[in-house]
Design a protein around this nucleic acid. Structure first.
Length: 254
DNA sequence: ATGGCTACGATCCGTAGA
């Protein structure tokens, strides 16, 4: 079973690339972030023609998340229950025997900013939610754009990024608090090429210089981590004309 | 050099992303 996550930076702009990627990569589950579209403008029919049914929590201009699967996702829950948040950043659903949580974690803008404080509070609410989900669903997978590079291996230039948003110690502590629930970073279950990233700035020819961060992740509960046989980043879509600034992350379960 | 893209929704610039 192939699981994937991709921050597409506008589902409608990226739709041709998305349809093509689905045909080539053939994931069983795909989580999308930054739809930048409300439900009426979500390309549901086009994606159904490509063989995927979507559970969607859409928003105009910003945010917006979806779970795509071969059959209709069941027991769909948008948002973090109990958290009042107008930003559409989370959707959960059951696909076959998996509980799937799709997340678009806040960016945080700059350490010390209001958005940074929102990010840390949001991660705290996410941890509480996932703790409860793990109790209900031992076969849990959390996929998405976490906007945190877990350690210096995930940063092209750790010195330049030291203390900055996405790598600051409080953000990394929030990441470790998720792992402490009993979740594994699927990417780190395997030997990986050095300097593997999932996001590259549009500016400064960052992709050509491989000046990136690994901030898109797939977290597996222990039961699923034991069944994971591969994980990685697919850089191919980032090489296309007019790409998303993120590349898809993948994990395969036996 | 603190910018440099890209998308969006408002206009022909501001906000946001990371």
């Amino acid at each position: 079973m192939k699981l994937a996550t991709w921050n597409v930076n506008s589902v409608n702009v990226r739709l041709p690339q998305l349809v093509e990627w689905l045909a080539v990569a053939r994931p069983d589950v795909l989580c999308l972030q930054e739809l930048k579209a409300e439900e009426p403008k979500y390309p549901r029919k086009e994606l159904e023609a490509a063989g995927y049914v979507s559970a969607v929590s859409g928003q105009k201009t910003y945010n917006g998340v979806a779970i795509l699967a071969r059959g209709a996702p069941a027991d769909v829950v948008p948002g973090i229950p109990g958290l009042a948040d107008e930003q559409k950043r989370v959707i959960a659903a059951t696909v076959q025997d998996l509980r799937v949580v799709c997340v678009y974690c806040p960016n945080g803008q700059a350490v010390g900013s209001d958005k940074y404080e929102y990010k840390l509070g949001w991660f705290s609410a996410l941890r509480e939610y996932l703790a409860a989900e793990l109790q209900r669903h031992p076969r849990l997978v959390v996929l998405g754009d976490f906007n945190v590079a877990p350690d210096d291996r995930d940063v092209h230039d750790p010195k330049a990024w030291e203390g900055q948003v996405h790598v600051s110690e409080p953000e990394r502590a929030a990441w470790r608090a998720l792992l402490a629930l009993g979740l594994k970073d699927s990417f780190r279950l395997f030997e990986q090429p050095e300097k593997t990233f999932s996001w590259w700035d549009y500016r400064m020819m960052a992709f050509r210089r491989n000046a990136g961060l690994r901030i898109d992740h797939i977290l597996l509960s222990d039961a699923l981590a034991q069944a994971c046989v591969a994980s990685g980043i697919d850089k191919a879509p980032r090489k296309l004309e007019r790409p998303s600034d993120h590349a898809p992350a993948l994990a395969e379960l036996a």
